[in-house]
Nucleic acid binder design. Structure first.
Lengths: 342, 342
DNA sequence: AGCCGTCGATAAAGCGCTTGATTAATGGGT
DNA sequence: ACCCATTAATCAAGCGCTTTATCGACGGCT
């Protein structure tokens, strides 16, 4: 009955199998200097006793924890966003494949002011940290430039601080979107931004887009549906001649489409809309949304893999840029909608 | 310079402040038998040295970890769903307020078959576990009936296994939705289900709804947007006379609305649609969705609070049901839409 | 002056596991 | 037979902190 005795330590296993305590430890760690015979015997009694090594004790001796933290910024209700969900999902899958546990953290002010982001390492909660959704306001990122603690930005990067990151090629994505709109003949463009002053990748999109196509008007949509609605209204009121709107993310694009529809503007016939991210709803919107697809799940996986390489000192610096591509659907007018709304 | 020496243990603090090692430990734990004078002195040198207690060592001695696991079922890309996001957000906030860390887990087959859900406790990763999104297929839940390990189902419960849970009053929610449709005069109802055989709360909704209003037709929408689209099409094809559709969740409702629109059926003029959950997009859909609001964030907070009470043995059983309410918007036709789509 | 009760601090025995140094046993070579 | 190189298992010293029992000193009391 493995379940009979709850707490069962390495010592009991040793006694029960007639070997020393250290021998048990050695088989636990698959040490080569143990003969197959005793290895077998010890393994058997471990199974019989239902022995489970105490990982606190192991970690204490090892001096590392095999867990990493995923920290994300404080959003309305932080996790309520597919953007983060996809990334975290990728991180988790890779982490558990590599035998790591993942701890969840939210970068609320208390987390930052109390320097919890350092204490997590120093108190031996984690071996490394992944930060999703960093922006210029997150000054604490600068404390990782010395690369003393394994740390990596996920799908963002910093111009001020030379830290590790894995990021998709926002500039190239924006370039494609602009090119596409350009080819469709659009000249009067409205741009709905968000976080242009704080988020490096938002700046990149803006810069890259405007290099190809100069927008008539730029308004802030706060990266939310509501903001997208407001921004779209501003745009068409301020300049009724615009024929296309580009938004920094899909949520705003979806909001914009809703508002335009309410205002009697047909999308894409009257106004084309192009988003960024390719969140799942983009494909189900009416009309479906043309947008730049980000391989979020893959980014999560890769980030995790690289972080663990940093932890193991296989590498000591990672700054990787992944390619991304435009996904053409109905909202830009280049593709025939399945059925036009009446 | 607190940063000068990286690794700094309790021993150094003891030496530097001229007291014994155990004294330092006692002030660390705010033991009353320490004089204010030495407490002050020790605290000062701790600050000076930038000392951080090693929580592995502490946990090893304490025999508990002050961390809990949040486990969720394996979905397409598990976290990519606001439903879970809101709940986790609530859990995190409460947990960190109470000094607990949260570990993320996904109940994929490997997690279950290797009994990782038990090892997490036995190997001292966690003190307790929160399971979101349980269904009848998750047989391992039965292993927690002995209440030997703190465990709690979040917004679900089980009829087969007597385990702890915090759940919203699905039956009452469904009753309200049915009543509402009834008062609006609908008689020919289509019901889009999902997980009716596996998910207890889905069954509850179905039962409670049909007690008030007998649906003409019941089809499965797999709880997804795509499924909702398919199901809606089936429904109107099979019985063109139906005037209202109720769906088990908002994602399906949104899919249904899209499909109905494509088919030239106006919502709500031709067909009313009512959903369940009140996900953020529900308010931004065209038309906005009438749905039963679930206080997901609050459920997360409460679940976490109760779990920690279980851990501390303040309680030894929790089975709580929270009230929920219908939110009336445009899609049921009871409320004038802001602007009708052309 | 002697005794006892308190209070504040310390000693020491863990918590459960790791690991380099050490010892014991084995077999091959001469 | 003896020595040495291998191989296999054990010893023992940690890893960094907790906690109970113990000890010493001090002051009040008779």
């Amino acid at each position: 009955m493995p379940k009979s005795k709850r707490r069962c330590t390495i010592k009991e296993v040793a006694e029960q199998s007639g070997v020393s305590l250290s021998t048990v430890s050695l088989v636990l760690n698959a040490h080569p200097r143990i003969s197959p015979a005793t290895r077998e015997r010890v393994n058997a009694t471990m199974k019989r006793l239902g022995y489970q090594p105490n990982r606190l004790a192991r970690a204490l001796a090892w001096k590392h924890t095999r867990t990493l933290a995923v920290v994300m910024p404080q959003l309305r209700h932080a996790f309520a966003d597919v953007y983060f969900g996809e990334i975290i999902s990728g991180i988790y899958d890779k982490a558990s494949k590599l035998g790591f546990k993942v701890l969840l953290e939210i970068a609320r002010t208390e987390f930052i002011e109390s320097q919890e982001y350092l204490r997590l390492y120093d108190q031996k909660y984690i071996d490394g940290m992944l930060f999703i959704g960093a922006n210029n306001k997150h000054k604490f990122v600068g404390e990782f430039v010395d690369r003393t603690r394994p740390f990596l930005l996920v799908n963002s990067y910093s111009k001020q601080h030379d830290v590790n990151y894995v990021v998709s090629n926002y500039k190239y994505g924006a370039w494609q979107a602009a090119q596409h709109l350009c080819r469709l003949g659009h000249k009067h463009i409205g741009f709905i931004g968000g976080g242009l002053n704080e988020i490096q990748t938002s700046q990149d999109i803006f810069e890259s887009f405007t290099e190809v196509l100069k927008p008539r008007l730029v308004v802030d949509g706060w990266l939310t549906e509501e903001g997208g609605m407001k921004a779209a209204e501003e745009l068409v009121n301020a300049d009724p001649a615009i024929t296309a709107i580009f938004t920094l993310n899909d949520k705003m694009a979806l909001g914009a489409i809703r508002k335009l529809t309410e205002l009697g503007r047909r999308v894409p016939q009257d106004i084309a809309v192009v988003g960024f991210d390719d969140i799942p709803q983009a494909a189900f919107a009416i009309p479906s949304l043309t947008t730049v697809h980000q391989p979020l799940y893959e980014i999560g996986k890769l980030s995790c893999e690289r972080l663990i390489e940093l932890i193991h000192r296989k590498v000591d610096r990672v700054q990787e840029v992944l390619p991304i591509y435009l996904t053409v659907r109905e909202s830009c007018g280049a593709k025939q909608p399945a059925t036009l709304p009446v």
